[in-house]
Amino acid sequence: MNDPRAATRTNVTWRGAVQVTSGKIVPAKIINFSASGIQLQCTVALKEKQTYQMMMEVPSIGDASRRTQVVCKATCIYSILSGDEYRAGMKYFDVQEQHLKLLASWHG
């Protein structure tokens, strides 16, 4: 079976958060990551085609105890119920320049 995605996904277990409305931030678990997208789990259904402010806590490749909070924006591509949580595919962008190298180290 071929994966039609343009970028290879890496399975991860990162903490994150999504601002779902002004003043309401929900925790998220990043479960896979690529050069342009992530899949996350959270307790609320994200709206497809909506852009959210979010944060990913990204560990250093060489030292997992060193984590950086990477703030970005992400547009929801899909959101589906999976058990008692939702899985959402997100296309992230607007990453601060100083965090691009860290993210690149995870996807080559």
Rank of each mutant, 00 (worst) to 15 (best):
E97V: 09
P4T: 10
K24C: 02
L103I: 06
C72K: 00
V44D: 05
Y92N: 03
D94F: 10
N11S: 03
N11G: 08
A17P: 08
L102E: 04
I77D: 13
T13H: 12
G83W: 14
A28K: 08
I80M: 14
D63G: 01
V18T: 02
R5K: 07
I31D: 08
A17E: 11
L100T: 15
L46W: 00
E57D: 12
E85Q: 13
C72W: 11
A74D: 06
K91A: 12
E85G: 10
T68F: 03
W106V: 03
M90E: 03
S65W: 03
D84E: 02
I77F: 03
S36H: 13
T51A: 00
V70E: 03
K47G: 04
S105G: 02
A88C: 12
M1W: 15
R5Y: 08
M55W: 01
K49S: 15
I30K: 02
F33T: 08
Y78R: 12
Y52N: 11
R87Y: 10
M90G: 15
P59K: 01
C72P: 07
L81G: 03
M90N: 14
P4W: 14
R9L: 09
K49D: 15
C76S: 12
V95G: 11
D94W: 14
C72I: 04
Q69I: 03
Q53Y: 01
T51N: 01
S34Q: 05
S105T: 14
A88E: 02
A64R: 02
H99Q: 04
Y92V: 06
A28S: 15
R66Y: 05
Q50D: 09
Q69D: 04
Y86R: 11
Q39G: 10
C42R: 10
D3Q: 05
V71G: 02
W106C: 08
D84H: 13
S36Q: 15
V70A: 08
Q19Y: 00
A17L: 00
R66W: 05
Q53G: 03
G83Q: 12
L46I: 12
I61E: 10
S105H: 05
R15T: 04
N11F: 01
R67N: 02
Q39E: 15
L100F: 00
T75N: 01
L40Q: 11
C76Q: 11
I80A: 09
K49N: 11
G108P: 08
R67I: 15
S36A: 13
K47A: 05
H99D: 13
W14F: 13
S22M: 03
T13G: 09
T13Y: 12
V20G: 06
D94I: 05
I31T: 06
S65K: 13
L103H: 05
Q19M: 04
V71W: 11
E48L: 01
S34M: 04
C72F: 07
C72H: 08
V44A: 01
Y52R: 11
F93D: 02
Y86F: 09
Q41D: 14
L40E: 05
V20D: 00
L100A: 07
R5C: 00
L81V: 03
I38W: 02
G37T: 07
E48H: 01
P4C: 10
I31V: 13
T75F: 00
A64L: 01
V58S: 07
V12I: 07
A6M: 07
T43P: 15
R87M: 07
D3F: 15
I38S: 06
M56Y: 00
Q50C: 12
C72T: 06
M54T: 01
M90S: 11
L46H: 06
M56S: 12
W106M: 00
S60C: 13
